[in-house]
Amino acid sequence: MKCKERGGEQIWNDTDRLLYDPERTRNCVSCGELIPYPRIASLPNTNICTSCATEGQVPSSAPPHPQPPVELRSCPRCGAPTAMYQNTKFKNWFVGCSTFPKCRWSKWR
């Protein structure tokens, strides 16, 4: 039941709850269906519909930045925190000291 298929009118269910309003609804970023107004009213910043949220689908985005392993959270040379860096040529990850270029310690995985 899409609002566009009904000519852009407001659609109410049998308990007088507003389901779709062309001025207050938006499309789901995962499936493209309209998000019902009750979901938008309860979660104003949502961008996925209820069915996609229950199926565990999330919009495609960049993967989160990997974290250094627990045993390498601090630099063995200077004691500063470490970070994960990505090689620009081969796109593989390595652990390095966060104070680079002062400390040049790194470990490739």
Rank of each mutant, 00 (worst) to 15 (best):
K2F: 12
D16L: 11
P76L: 14
I11P: 00
T99R: 15
S98E: 14
F100S: 11
Q67M: 15
R17N: 09
C52M: 01
P22I: 04
P38V: 00
S60P: 10
A53N: 14
Q86L: 07
P68M: 07
D14I: 15
D16M: 07
E55K: 15
R109T: 06
G8K: 12
K107Q: 08
K107G: 01
P22M: 12
E71N: 08
S42M: 13
L18V: 10
C3P: 00
P66S: 05
N13F: 08
P68V: 06
S74F: 12
R24V: 01
T82S: 06
W12T: 07
W93T: 08
R24Q: 15
V58I: 12
H65I: 13
Q10L: 11
I48S: 02
C75N: 05
E9M: 12
P69K: 09
Q67A: 14
W105Q: 02
M1F: 11
Y37I: 00
Y85P: 02
P66C: 04
K102N: 10
P59A: 12
T88Y: 05
P64N: 04
R73N: 13
P22K: 10
V95R: 01
G8E: 05
A80E: 12
A62D: 11
P66I: 05
S51M: 14
W12H: 05
R73C: 08
K107I: 04
E55A: 15
I11R: 01
K4N: 10
R73D: 03
S74Q: 11
N92D: 10
P44F: 03
L43V: 15
C28E: 02
R6K: 15
P76S: 09
K102S: 13
N87T: 07
Q10C: 14
I35Y: 00
P101Y: 13
V95W: 02
Q10A: 12
T54Y: 13
M1Y: 09
F90I: 00
Y85W: 14
K102W: 06
E23N: 11
V70W: 05
T82R: 05
W108N: 07
T46G: 03
E71V: 06
Y37K: 03
F90T: 08
T50L: 06
R26K: 14
P38F: 00
G7A: 09
Y37P: 00
G79I: 06
R104C: 05
S106H: 09
R6V: 10
T54K: 07
V29L: 10
A83M: 13
A83H: 06
G56C: 05
R26V: 04
A83C: 06
R77T: 14
K89A: 13
R39F: 04
R104I: 03
I40K: 02
L72N: 04
A80Y: 01
Y85K: 15
I11H: 03
L19K: 07
F100R: 11
N45D: 15
T46M: 01
L19Q: 06
S98D: 15
P59Y: 09
E33T: 04
P81L: 06
P44L: 04
T54N: 11
P22F: 03
P38R: 02
M1S: 12
K2Y: 08
N13P: 01
I40P: 01
P64S: 09
T82W: 05
